[in-house]
Write a protein that binds this DNA or RNA. Structure first.
Lengths: 131, 131
DNA sequence: CCGTATCCTGGGGGATACTG
DNA sequence: CAGTATCCCCCAGGATACGG
């Protein structure tokens, strides 16, 4: 891009300049990027989970990041938050339809990750010399 | 984790402590995490691409990050680097088998990203109130 | 039990310039 | 054309503590 050369007439496509053609991969990255979004989503795949349960299951995440990520994911329409208030406060998070549509991608990623773990742990195939 | 309490006998599982049970999703994130790995991989899906071609196609990536990411991906066995040296230097990068196995996941992500773009751009369905 | 405010640090990633 | 070295900034994410 940069400045288009001046050729005497307009060579730009106005619409394309304003609403730039966006890469879906980049878009996905905006929503699920970062250190915890994917692990979080993954742990919600099987159904609604409570805040503290997530805190325990998603090893290493801090209270704060959990709260922040859940909020963002909710804002992006991937999660739904629901209170089941009794005496003590209970909050559950569950995937929305939009969130569930991400699961196929997560499953593929999971499978791939498994492969890597087993290969790097067992015998490295190396992949060197294959087409 | 942390220090296990001393209960007089060994309550730890040695093997589990050394080769901790690792989450495949986390493993995948180590390899393809960051701002540019996924876009890069995506642009290599169709075949070998030259350094400068990638520099142009992956909008916004800097010369340096491109070099760094390619190196890391090569180190992780996802890419293969090959020189086609003539007068001027030419270097091509292509997915290895390991790299190609990631494509199904990328395609799913791409499809999902497309959905989001069209929904957020056109009429937001919102997803609020659906089961 | 759940959420947020504040503070602080590390390293991811950009700019620039140099080499082969 | 391809790759590296250096410097530097910024903010994602951790620690801690308070509030409903």
């Amino acid at each position: 891009m940069g400045e288009p050369e001046n050729v005497g007439y307009d060579i730009t496509l106005p619409a394309a300049n304003i609403y730039e053609v966006r890469c879906p991969i980049l878009r996905a990255l905006e929503v699920i990027g970062g250190k915890w979004k994917l692990p979080l989503l993954w742990h919600l795949a099987d159904g609604a989970v409570r805040f503290n349960a997530l805190h325990r299951e998603v090893r290493g995440i801090t209270h704060m990041m959990l709260s922040k990520c859940l909020k963002e994911l909710e804002g992006d329409g991937l999660l739904r938050r629901s209170e089941c208030g009794g005496k003590v406060r209970h909050v559950e998070y569950a995937l929305t339809e939009r969130g569930r549509r991400l699961l196929p991608a997560l499953r593929e990623l999971y499978r791939w990750g498994e492969e890597q773990l087993s290969q790097d742990g067992g015998g490295r195939t190396g992949d060197a010399g294959q087409s």
